[in-house]
Design a protein around this nucleic acid. Structure first.
Length: 375
RNA sequence: CCGGGGAUGGCAGAUCGGCUUAUGCAGCGGACUGUAAAUCCGCGAAGGUAGGUUCAACUCCUACUCCCCGGA
């Protein structure tokens, strides 16, 4: 049911095919974040289909709290629940452990935390994270891991690597209880900014023979060069014939950077969150994408790659021409006056337009990347 | 015309004889990277007009202007 193949390479950048029970995904690909089984901003499944979105990512932690995995399972799993027949990934909740910060207690068996909704004391273990994800029924599932913040000390990062390894092993074992080949489990490589810890983490994860490998941790603040270094340091110790997933990235420049380091898979809240907050990305420079991929050492200048506008800010407010005239949804059904009205008066509905725009932009970016690698 | 009420940033709307006149919306700027975010953080901006009382008036008094309600 699951398979992965690299079909073409341009330097380290890879064109790939990932088959899942719910369809084939061509990589490098981007997973839009649908935390609670819906993309925020009133995006519907038909919008995703129109924009040829390949895959979405939902979240174990949030769905466990509401509505609960049993309800999702009754609705036919995530696919039935969200009326989406394409591939889905679920994140394990490992990141929430990290991002919910002070309400969380970590021990060797799992994590104890309080619900951000009603304060209920809850516990997640490697096994329960897999149970929940099994009930949710996503195609790609992630093990519970320990994510370290950017400023973490070497000792903290080393401990996280170790804990993540032990838990990954337990997650893999827990998966044995479920029917084979219905879900693909990845191993998460931590290691912060320390190349030797990345290497160690990658090699140990590799022993466990996962379907794919992801690069975890919080590195945004480290900047582009550090990202490139970390990604390269990790990837060189990962198998060439398995998917590589950079978790939580990123901006278009991050993506191009990581693709040419050999990453196949991405996810990030950025395009959707920023759109909801008024910022759209536009004017993708396809020639520049090609240049950056063809010359892997070329520094990437975000300003050459695309343009950012904040549609709620003065110079761009209600300027509907910022939206691509080729936009599959905006093009025909919305008049200028209507778009103007949406942006000015109907806050959330106007933001829906921006969300659609950014989804379209990211799909365009990924398509362009694939086209360049394809040659 | 008579009686009553009222005039505070672009709008709405509090407070107060002296202290940066709240707050919300709008405006302007910034942030956002495995979503506790249709969010968060900043900034600019006000006392109808003319007098009076007072050490001090947006606040009290008088007149004027305008608005609202009721009655002819």
């Amino acid at each position: 049911m699951f398979s992965f193949a690299v079909t073409k390479q341009l330097h380290a950048a890879r064109l790939s095919r990932l088959s899942t029970p719910h369809g084939v995904i061509e990589g490098p690909f981007f997973q839009f974040v649908a935390t609670r089984a819906a993309i925020r901003g009133m995006v519907f499944q038909e919008d995703l289909e129109k924009m040829k979105v390949q895959i979405v990512l939902a979240n174990t932690y949030h769905l466990h709290l509401q509505p609960g995995e049993d309800i999702v399972a009754k609705a036919g799993g995530l696919h039935g629940f969200m009326q989406w027949s394409g591939p889905i990934t679920t994140d394990s909740g490992g990141y929430q452990v990290f991002s919910l910060g002070n309400n969380v207690k970590l021990d060797s068996e799992g994590v104890t935390f309080r619900s951000h909704i009603d304060g209920t004391l809850l516990r997640l273990t490697p096994e329960s994270a897999m149970d929940i994800q099994h009930k949710l029924g996503a195609d790609i599932v992630m093990p519970l891991d320990v994510c370290t913040p950017f400023g973490a000390t070497r000792e903290e990062v080393a401990a996280a690597v170790e804990q993540t390894y032990v838990w990954a092993q337990r997650c893999a074992e827990a998966m044995q209880r479920f029917p084979a080949n219905t879900q693909a489990l990845y191993g998460i490589v931590q290691g912060g900014v320390y190349p030797d810890l990345r290497q160690q983490a990658a090699e140990r994860m590799r022993e466990l023979n996962f379907f794919g490998y992801s690069i975890g941790g919080e590195l945004q603040e480290a900047g582009e060069k550090e990202l490139e270094k970390v990604v390269k340091a990790t990837i060189q110790h990962l198998p060439a014939d398995k998917p590589r997933y950079l978790m939580g990235y990123g901006t278009p420049e991050d993506i191009v950077e990581a693709v040419r380091a050999g990453v196949d898979q991405f996810d990030c809240v950025l395009p959707i969150r920023n759109a909801r907050h008024g910022q759209i990305m536009t004017d993708l420079n396809k020639e520049y994408v090609a240049e950056c991929l063809q010359d892997p050492d070329k520094p990437i200048d975000p300003k050459k790659l695309y343009t950012k506008f904040d549609i709620t800010k003065a110079p761009y407010r209600s300027d509907y021409s910022l939206f691509s005239p080729n936009h599959p949804i905006i093009q025909k059904s919305y008049t200028k006056a209507y778009v103007h009205h949406l942006l000015r008066a109907e806050g959330p509905s106007g933001l829906r337009l921006a969300v659609l725009h950014n989804i379209h932009f990211y799909e365009q970016l990924m398509r362009e990347i694939r086209d360049v690698i394809r040659g």
